[in-house]
């Protein structure tokens, strides 16, 4: 199957924002405008996350989420602040096809099994914000901790062990973000990707660090990711989805062709 090129919108208040290492957020633009832009560029999917909902303990703005969904006829993953099956239903009603769960589930893993039972595993995405820990000299092999609340808080969980557990509970996809590489535009954390690809039997999306078509090729071919998620390089118009796909095709990776209107 063809790999998916996913555009990601991080939402704070009424805006799409983007930072580096999930910090220093800059306003990029209006969510619905960017959604339309990436749909027209040929994105295969969109991820929209309210990145402060968990931190502030509030529900996302579902009207705003719906305004994003209005622009697209491609799959849409939404997340932010999910604490219950009802929250998931609200996202689905706002136009989501899949929902991404992180913060609450790290403390209440049973939410994952409940959600899978209710909506099917293909609907439930585990969002993991992995940050390197103990990779300094003499501290042994590299490890990652799962962060929460938009990459700001410690969960105390080993990211790899947490993903394994969530897979056992039935998540249908893993959206793997490297907090260390997020927003850096220096390529993906290939070590992190390899560590998860080694056992993940569900689709794996790598996010954080997309640089250019080569970096995507590397993640898809060498890293065995099923999809790549891009934000900064699209937001700052360094690349369009179309040009990224052209680059992948040149590397022998077939992509979905969007019929011209």
């Amino acid at each position: 199957m063809k790999p998916r090129i996913i555009a990601r919108l991080d939402i704070k208040g009424p805006n799409v924002v983007k930072g580096i290492h999930t910090e220093g957020l800059r306003v990029i633009g209006k969510p619905s405008d960017l959604a339309r832009k990436y749909y027209q560029q040929g994105a295969d999917e969109l991820v929209v996350m309210d990145i402060v909902a968990s931190l502030y303990g509030r529900s996302p703005d579902f009207d705003l989420m719906r305004s994003v969904a209005d622009e697209l006829f491609i799959p849409l993953t939404m997340g932010g602040g999910i604490q219950s099956v009802q929250d998931i239903n609200n996202f689905l009603r706002a136009g989501a096809d899949k929902v991404a769960i992180n913060t609450y589930a790290t403390r209440h893993p049973e939410l994952i099994s409940e959600a899978v039972k209710q909506f099917g595993s293909q609907c439930i995405v585990l969002s993991v914000e992995a940050k390197r820990t103990g990779s300094g000299p003499g501290s042994g092999p590299v490890r990652w901790e799962a962060y929460t609340d938009g990459g700001r808080e410690h969960s105390g969980l080993d990211a790899i062990e947490w993903i394994k557990k969530a897979l056992d509970l039935g998540v249908g996809e893993v959206l793997l973000t490297s907090v260390d590489f997020d927003g850096t535009r220096k390529g993906f954390d290939m070590e992190l990707l390899a560590a998860v690809a080694a056992f993940a039997q569900v689709p794996l999306v790598i996010h954080g660090g997309a640089k250019d078509p080569k970096s995507l090729t590397q993640a898809l071919k060498d890293g065995h990711a099923d999809a790549v998620c891009c934000a900064s390089i699209l937001h700052y118009d360094e690349w369009t989805v179309e040009n990224l796909k052209k680059g992948l095709e040149a590397d022998g990776i077939p992509t979905r062709h969007v019929p011209s209107p």
Binding site: M1, K2, P3, R4, D44, S121, Q122, G172, E173, A200, Q201, V202, P203, D226, A227, R256
Partner: peptide
Amino acid sequence: NEKTPHMGWN
């Protein structure tokens, strides 16, 4: 050689 769910464009 493939994962399930079958998720994506085909």
